[in-house]
Design a protein around this nucleic acid. Sequence first.
DNA 1: GATACTTGCTAAAAAAATTGATAATCAAGA
DNA 2: TCTTGATTATCAATTTTTTTAGCAAGTATC
Lengths: 148, 148
Amino acid sequence: MADDDIRARIQQLGVRQQRFERHLAKELGVDAAGIEAMDHLISTGPATPTELARRLEISTAATTLVLNRLETAGHIHRERHPTDGRKLVVTAEQNSAELAYSHVLPMIEGVEQLVESMTPEERMTIQRFLDQLITIYDDATRKTHQNF
Amino acid sequence: MADDDIRARIQQLGVRQQRFERHLAKELGVDAAGIEAMDHLISTGPATPTELARRLEISTAATTLVLNRLETAGHIHRERHPTDGRKLVVTAEQNSAELAYSHVLPMIEGVEQLVESMTPEERMTIQRFLDQLITIYDDATRKTHQNF
DNA sequence: GATACTTGCTAAAAAAATTGATAATCAAGA
DNA sequence: TCTTGATTATCAATTTTTTTAGCAAGTATC
């Protein structure tokens, strides 16, 4: 019976995450795809448009438009790749990165405090739980694909 | 330091959830909004368009279009509200509900097994963790709103 | 060096959302 | 009762964002 409670909470968490992303997007004046791109650029560093397309799971054509919007807004800039002339390197502007980070900070600090408030055993429990949950979603996403 | 690991996992979970939803949408031939609407109708029973709009966090006009698409595809039907002539009652078709459920089943069973494999203490830890996490996201989403 | 692949972009079209307006209904109060 | 104001679902027009298809430039492989 507790399964249902936990599953309901997992779903609710997903709802909140999406809501937070949309909120962030509105707050910063960019669209949701732009937020995800910025997030990737900030947390993993510069990337090429194709890498971003894979990360956002949209076409490279759509990525071009996302980057156009971000560039127009002054949030990123594109440079030529030093060795591969076909590629570009997309980098988040310092100012925009800091602005975005400042908006995400409350969430980060909240999680930080929450994790710190737990015992090492609890942390391990949570970590294992999350890992297995991710695997479950991955498996479930592949499952029906394989009917072909 | 473990905070970062856990936060990364939380984010990854969100990515998988969205991916699963899109996968489901493609699998069933409806859009993501339609999936969420069906989910609500199946798990909480019939609802009015306005209720669905609130749940999906889109306008009632957009909801009308979502319902049109679902109705055309034979996944739902609309009836007049018994007491309030302005309202409609949207109900999921039995066949579609079962079909949708069968596609979500692998995920549900996975979570079920995962929860069953844990001790009562671990379950409580997870539950508290998820509850607090939801609260953190809610707070973070409100935060910058209140700059006005 | 010729051929095939990769990369990022453009253009046209499709998909889906928003905003604003409208018709029908309800709820209260004069 | 009737009228005023609010609510509900829809429609129409516009905007936003994505996809598909195709292309030009660069790279790699043979």
